[in-house]
């Protein structure tokens, strides 16, 4: 029970994932991190079979996804895309109901189990009171929870989240991350692309660090999150210290020492600040 990636090559036009080999163990909450364009979203989409593989294999629970029907994979893996499409004129309850599609026939006829799973998902994500509201009328945070509830209703052992906190206020970011943690505690294997290292350090049990389409490091946040790693991967000098309350690693940039900015640019910024 794990996700095994072997010599994967994939990607859009110019950019390719390059010979990525990794194992994402079952039961972990894995965060995929790395700078913009490093391939972390591409890797997630490749696992979800939303991008075709040029080479290599993805095995989920030992089964090669390239040989499985889409519907069989959908019973194993639920995905929250980075920009979910909000269909017009659809209520929250209806949206969450679509999560049952992999367990239904062509016509979406609901069984008693389907009904129960939908109710449970609405409760788990605490949006039962919003079930008759139109998804398009929800706030960003509510909308994200509705799509998360759809993933929960899908009732899969694996859940993939592509930047689930982007465009959310800090309160909703933590709401979504805590929900993710709850799902993890309930036994699901979770892989999330996160752009915030702090979030990754705080919530993930396992980190997969990527740079330039390659796997750079893997391990627990406490093992691998060091100033050296952050500088090598993100090109930013930082201090890394433990949160006084939670004990998780925190990353804070060293002031005025960003090596990525040229001398001229830095000076211009200072002038601008005067």
């Amino acid at each position: 029970m794990s996700i095994e990636l072997t010599d994967i090559r994939a990607g859009y036009g110019g950019f390719m994932l390059d010979q990525v080999t990794a194992t994402i163990k079952a039961g972990e909450l894995t965060a995929l991190i790395g700078p913009n364009g490093c391939g972390k979203s591409t890797l997630l989409k490749t696992i979800a079979r939303q991008l075709p593989l040029s080479a290599g294999t993805v095995r989920i629970s030992g089964r090669d996804t390239a040989r499985e029907p889409t519907k069989a994979i959908a019973r194993q893996v639920a995905v929250l895309p980075q920009h979910p499409v909000v269909p017009p004129g659809i209520s929250v309850g209806q949206l969450v109901g679509y999560g049952r599609a992999p367990h239904q026939n062509l016509f979406g006829v609901r069984s008693r189990t389907d009904q129960e799973k939908i109710e449970a998902a609405l409760e788990a994500v605490a949006i039962a009171d919003l079930r008759d509201r139109m998804v398009s009328e929800l706030s960003g945070g509510q909308r994200q929870r509705a799509f998360l509830a759809m993933c929960v209703a899908q009732d899969t052992p694996y859940v993939l989240l592509d930047e689930p906190t982007s465009f959310l206020d800090i309160k909703y970011q933590y709401e979504v991350l805590e929900l993710t943690e709850t799902l993890h505690a309930a036994g699901k294997t979770i892989v999330a692309v996160l752009h915030d290292i702090g979030h990754a350090a705080r919530f993930a049990t396992n980190l997969v660090v990527m740079k330039d389409g390659r796997l750079y490091a893997t391990g627990t946040p406490n093992q691998i999150l060091t100033p050296e790693l952050v500088e090598q991967v993100y090109g930013l000098r930082t201090r890394v210290y433990a949160d006084p309350v939670t004990g998780s690693k925190m990353v804070s940039p060293v002031p005025n020492m960003q090596p990525s900015l040229g001398h001229e640019t830095a000076r211009t910024m200072c002038v601008g600040l005067d």
Partner: peptide
């Protein structure tokens, strides 16, 4: 084919994730 259209309306990524070919 109403249910297929419901799922397709969610976009390619989401429809794939829900098991639609």
């Amino acid at each position: 084919l109403f249910f297929r259209l419901d799922l397709m309306r969610l976009g390619t990524s989401q429809a794939t994730a829900l098991g639609v070919n």
